[in-house]
């Protein structure tokens, strides 16, 4: 290709000036993501908010601006029970995944010495994710059932005489499945934070005479806060938005907000489902806002 004639100095300067204007460049770089988020996140949410004020008949929805859906939602005692259940599941699952996730991450980060083994064992943790989470969840059902493995083993050991009924289709089984499904979401960010901790800090702590527990409390946990917070956000949002785990593991006997929404959708009550979704969204956002007040993730990262 023949060399292009050199641009006049004036044009060159003008071009550079435009590109060097930090604002323009910044906007350009941010625009692809902004467009994607606007189209696939903001627009649907706006749509949901709009529809939540609409009315519905048996088989159709019609545009309106009425508060019926919200009125019914806040006027029904079911809503409060169901929101309470949702928080209960989120809180218990959070506490258990935190303890488990922290322990696993601690073991990986501090007890396992070689990087090769750390990576290897970390990958082992992800193996269950090779199957779909529905399968991981459903496989508990035959295990926990009245005549399942757990009960028959306990009976054959003589620990119990009668099968334990509460193992399956109960809050226990729901939370068990949640913990099983979501612990890894706690392990990963905590492990990540732990790996960034400067080992000389731990040595310093020991040199200053701190016990293992004191090091953990005063050095490791504070430095893991961002990881814990990210894991917490993952777990709470996943649990609060779930509906299928609750349905399968409770044998449809318990309900959380997600199930309320999915029931409404299956019965073509889109406006009422939207209203519930809006309330749930607000609740989750408030929870996250509260969490972020506790730890400034941006500063810590």
């Amino acid at each position: 290709m023949p060399p292009r004639p050199p641009l006049s100095i004036f044009t060159k300067m003008k071009r550079q000036a435009v590109l060097q204007n930090r604002n323009v460049l910044g906007w350009l770089q941010a625009s692809p993501l902004a467009v994607v988020l606007l189209g696939f996140l903001v627009a649907p949410i706006v749509m949901i908010v709009i529809v939540s004020f609409w009315g519905a008949t048996e088989y159709s929805i019609y545009p309106a601006f009425q508060f019926d859906n919200y009125e019914f939602l806040f006027g029904s005692s079911v809503t409060y029970t169901v929101f309470f259940n949702t928080f209960k599941y989120a809180l218990i699952t959070w506490a258990m995944t935190l303890v488990l996730g922290f322990t696993v991450a601690y073991f990986l980060a501090f007890e396992v010495r070689s990087l090769k083994w750390q990576i290897g064992l970390f990958l082992v943790c992800t193996i269950p994710f090779w199957t779909s989470n529905i399968i991981r969840m459903i496989s508990w059902i035959p295990f926990l059932g009245r005549n399942g493995l757990a009960n028959s083993t306990l009976i054959s050991w003589g620990v119990i005489d009668e099968p334990l009924e509460w193992l399956l289709f109960s809050d226990f089984s729901v939370i068990l499945a949640f913990v099983h499904l979501y612990t890894l979401f706690m392990v990963v960010p905590i492990f990540n934070s732990m790996m960034r901790i400067d080992r000389s800090l731990l040595e310093a702590a020991r040199d200053c005479g701190a016990s293992g527990f004191q090091t953990l409390r005063n050095v490791i946990i504070p430095l893991c806060k961002p990881g814990i917070m990210i894991g917490t956000i993952f777990v709470t949002t996943l649990v609060m938005g779930d509906f299928i785990t609750v349905r399968f593991m409770s044998g449809s006997q318990r309900a959380n907000v997600g199930r309320l929404i999915s029931n409404d959708i299956s019965l073509l009550q889109y406006p009422s489902a939207s209203a519930t979704a809006v309330v749930l969204l607000c609740t989750v956002l408030i929870v996250i806002a509260l969490l972020l007040r506790l730890v400034d993730i941006r500063k810590e990262l």
Partner: peptide, 25 residues
Amino acid sequence: AKKAGQFRAFWKTFDESVNLMASGE
């Protein structure tokens, strides 16, 4: 009846009903 623990589970799909019955739940 539900509060008194009469029901083991509710089912929504064909397969669920088969499994509930076959497993003796």
